[in-house]
């Protein structure tokens, strides 16, 4: 069996006020493969990431599960952290116990049980994870800007000034958008053209 580490984040009180993170970590140690589980106040912070790295070395962890916010937020943060200590970044799973648990449920018992269930789900999954390698694709260094009002013109100018080509499209015959319809604009009352 592979050696799994589980890291449960309090997110200050964002998670810990509703989810009993200590209990989630304790229950995680009963799960298959889990050899280490702990909590920390802010797992994404530098000390939090160091804690994960240290645990990987000390406990010879092969797979990592972090239970914290949405993976849409910090998945890459933690992938980088475990890659720093030589683990393949895809031997990692993230459990969302904030956006999809502590923030949407008030009942502590139910929310804690849900957190444990979600951690178990991630542990079962991570045991099946395999190392993955990233590839590369080329980038066409030209930008399309849709709409040539203030926003579009400003974006287009900034990108163009940085040295990249911009294709600026507007459905009207003239650029300028709403702005050119306006008289002086607040708070400076300068002209809008």
């Amino acid at each position: 069996m592979k050696r799994v580490g589980v890291f449960v984040c309090d997110c200050g009180t964002n998670i810990a006020a509703v989810v009993d993170t200590e209990r989630v970590a304790r229950e995680a140690t009963e799960m298959p493969g889990v050899v280490f589980a702990t909590t920390y106040k802010y797992m994404c912070s530098d000390p939090g990431q160091d804690l994960i790295k240290k645990a990987i070395r000390e406990h010879n962890l092969q797979q990592v599960v972090v239970a914290s916010c949405s993976p849409r937020m910090h998945e890459n943060t933690f992938r980088k952290a475990i890659a720093d200590v030589g683990l393949n970044p895809y031997l990692f799973e993230m459990v969302n116990i904030r956006e999809q648990d502590s923030w949407v449920h008030a009942d502590k018992e139910q929310a804690t049980r849900k957190a444990s269930d979600l951690v178990r789900m991630a542990v079962f999954k991570v045991l099946k994870n395999k190392p993955l390698q990233t590839g590369t694709i080329p980038i066409t260094k030209r930008a399309l800007v849709v709409g040539a009002g203030i926003a579009g013109m400003q974006s287009a100018l900034d990108i163009a000034e940085a040295g990249y080509e911009v294709v600026l499209v507007d459905r009207e015959a003239t650029i300028g958008g709403r702005m050119v319809q306006l008289d002086k604009t607040f708070p400076t009352l300068d002209c809008s053209a």
């Binding site: 849409r72 956006e99 648990d101 923030w103 949407v104 449920h105 008030a106 929310a111 049980r113 269930d117």
Partner: peptide, 16 residues
């Protein structure tokens, strides 16, 4: 579901 969390919309905890 993340947005629901950001807006603190409450719903039953039975769903995984």
């Amino acid at each position: 579901a993340d947005l629901a969390g950001l807006n603190r919309l409450q719903y039953p905890a039975d769903i995984r």
